[in-house]
């Protein structure tokens, strides 16, 4: 028990900090924890909102890391997974008037179906061609969503508006509950992913990334393993889309565009490809950077963020987590030296 606590102290501290975050922000602003619980508007509520957005992004980036970082399939249609979840939730809640569990079930079924759709093209194409085919599927979905024929359902290029989340989870009045639900979903999915990667199935997925021919030589039918990774990833991304729709009052067609796939790619490249916790760190860095730049610099923010990405690629190529792991020995040594210096 003690050993478990010691070896995981960093993650546990992070978890504790995340649980206490709304209250700490509230206290810094002079709000009592009771006021935070009552969802009174203020900085605490705002920080929760930002954190929920980060959780959803992290969930989405995690699902991309599974197929790109772990299994080694570069898919440019990943935003379709997210978009299907987001749009289906909105349509089912608004137009069809289904209940929340039924909606979730529908989203999961759709996620499995689209994973199989992507799986259909898997045996045929590899590498960069797979990237192009998925790009094609993703852009067809984007075009369908944007088309004016489906306007009554998807809102065409304006986006799906006026989705009302059920009262007990409403992001406006019950945000603290939403915050903890999102946090626990993220933690559960993260643990599930860690277990998946450490399981024999996950090991084969890593083998496929390293050398697919050799994995097949060893007798594994790589198709099934790829399909398993794709299905799990699709389910997670659809779940992220589901939460996105519940949290945001509007689903913009941008979440189905190529740009949103690139967002996932940037997040995991910032955090570290194939590290899983890199996706979490990357989501935090990406969202805060984006938020800060847009707030303090304004319109030309994407210039700075573009420059940051170029610098990242040139000087921190393995991402934050990857570099931390590779250099942890040196960092530890430097830390010891620093401690000695100050006695």
């Amino acid at each position: 028990m003690k050993k478990f606590l010691l070896s995981n102290r960093a993650s546990l501290f992070t978890l504790l900090a995340l649980i206490l975050l709304p209250f700490i922000v509230g206290l810094m602003d002079g709000e009592s924890p009771m006021a935070v619980f009552a969802n009174e508007s203020g900085n605490a509520k705002f920080a929760q909102g930002l954190a929920i957005e980060i959780f959803i992004l992290a969930l989405y980036a995690l699902s991309f890391d599974l197929i790109f970082g772990i299994t080694g399939m570069l898919s440019f249609g990943h935003s379709m997974f997210f978009g299907v979840g987001a749009y289906l939730t909105g349509i089912s809640l608004k137009t069809l008037g289904l209940s929340l569990p039924a909606t979730l079930g529908l989203v999961f079924i759709a996620a499995i179906v689209q994973a199989i759709l992507f799986g259909l093209v898997l045996p045929r194409v590899k590498g960069i061609t797979f990237a192009l085919v998925t790009l094609g599927l993703g852009s067809v979905f984007h075009i369908v969503v944007m088309s004016s024929e489906l306007g009554p359902y998807t809102g065409a290029d304006v986006g799906l508006q006026g989705v009302i989340a059920p009262a007990f989870i409403s992001p406006a009045n019950e945000r603290i509950r939403f915050y903890f639900i999102a946090l626990s979903i993220l933690i559960l999915v993260y643990l599930l992913y860690k277990r998946f990667v450490d399981s024999p199935t996950g090991r084969v997925c890593i083998a496929i990334r390293e050398n697919e021919g050799r994995a097949r030589m060893l007798g594994y039918n790589t198709f099934y393993f790829k399909l398993a990774a794709l299905t799990l990833s699709s389910l997670t991304a659809a779940l992220a889309g589901f939460m996105h729709t519940l949290y945001q009052p509007i689903v913009s067609p941008n979440v189905a565009s190529m740009g949103f796939t690139v967002t996932a790619l940037l997040i995991i490249l910032i955090g570290g490809v194939g590290t899983l916790n890199g996706a979490l760190v990357g989501a935090v860095v990406y969202r805060l950077l984006d938020f800060g730049l847009r707030r303090y610099i304004g319109e030309s923010a994407s210039f700075i963020s573009g420059a940051v990405y170029v610098l990242f690629v040139l000087f921190i190529p393995f991402g934050i987590v990857g570099t931390w792991r590779a250099k942890s020995f040196q960092i530890n040594q430097g830390w010891q030296r620093l401690r000695k210096l100050f006695g």
């Binding site: 490249l269 573009g306 420059a307 170029v310 690629v313 040139l314």
Partner: peptide, 13 residues
């Protein structure tokens, strides 16, 4: 793979 990210960043710039 990092060339992808580099060229994407350059495109934004």
């Amino acid at each position: 793979i990092y060339q992808l990210m580099l060229t994407l960043g350059m495109s934004a710039i």
